[in-house]
Simulated scan of single mutants.
Amino acid sequence: MTRHFKVREAREGDVAQLAEGFYAFEVRSVFIEPFDGSDLIESTLAVPYEKIYDFDATSLKEHIGNAEAALFVVDDLDFRPRGYIAVSHFWNGYASIDDLAVDLSLRRLGAAKLLMNAAANWAQQEGLAGLRLETQNNNVAACKFYKQYGFILGGYDQYLYSGIQTEKAETALFWYLRFL
């Protein structure tokens, strides 16, 4: 169900409001090998846990007013930004989705799709070949969203996070959406 939220380019003051959002999620399952791009295999965890991403205000601010990047926000019905997508030019001619997060209050209501549409429109206007992004095998809901949106799994890296994680091994999954 898509509500009529407004997506717009971010302004400097939006980042402070975005920092108030709740972007964590509960990990109840993960995708396991083989990561061959067809049907991913989902495995339920015996003990679910909460995944918390760091909010990087500095990085988001760098997307505002940047000729090779953009930051879009989705406002809730009270006109407060409650989700965002940061996009930039990537070295391979694609647009990189550098960050995408939606507050718990707007999840499963179409906000992520509206944000992705804004990023795709921006990338097409920039003359880029498509969109690319990276997420982890424990972000099952995001992976399902990307696949439903039309992205294909282009590869994975099981060692990308091995230097910073000790207890919960994550595999990086790389997704691509090519414009025709």
Rank of each mutant, 00 (worst) to 15 (best):
I152M: 09
V102C: 05
Q148P: 00
A111W: 04
G163Y: 05
Q17P: 06
Y156G: 02
L40S: 13
N138F: 06
Y23S: 05
N66I: 05
E134H: 13
E9N: 02
A119D: 05
D54G: 11
A69F: 02
L115I: 12
R11L: 13
H4D: 14
D39Y: 03
A123Y: 04
A120P: 08
Q165D: 12
A111V: 07
D157L: 01
S88T: 09
A111N: 03
A57C: 09
S43L: 15
L114H: 03
K144G: 04
A46K: 14
E62S: 15
C143K: 01
L180I: 10
D75V: 10
A120C: 09
F55A: 01
D76C: 11
S96E: 15
I152S: 12
N92R: 14
S59C: 05
A123N: 00
G93C: 09
A16V: 13
A24P: 03
N66T: 09
A70W: 03
I164L: 11
V27S: 00
K61I: 10
D39I: 12
E134K: 01
G37S: 01
F25I: 07
F72T: 05
L18M: 12
H63I: 07
R108S: 14
L104D: 04
H89S: 08
E20T: 15
R82H: 05
F35Y: 15
H89Q: 08
I164D: 06
K6F: 06
E62W: 01
A10M: 09
H63Q: 10
T171S: 01
S59T: 13
V30D: 00
V27F: 01
G93I: 09
R80V: 14
Y23H: 02
Q17F: 06
I152H: 14
E68I: 04
V73L: 01
A112M: 06
F174G: 03
S43T: 12
A119I: 07
V140R: 05
G163T: 02
E68A: 13
L115V: 07
L153C: 04
Y94G: 06
G154I: 02
A129G: 00
Y146H: 04
Q124N: 03
V30R: 10
G127W: 11
Q125E: 14
A120I: 07
Y149K: 02
L106D: 00
D14Y: 00
L18C: 01
A123R: 08
L104M: 12
D78T: 13
F55Q: 09
Y156E: 14
F151E: 07
W91R: 15
R3H: 11
A57Q: 08
E134N: 10
I41S: 10
W122Y: 12
D78R: 11
A123T: 05
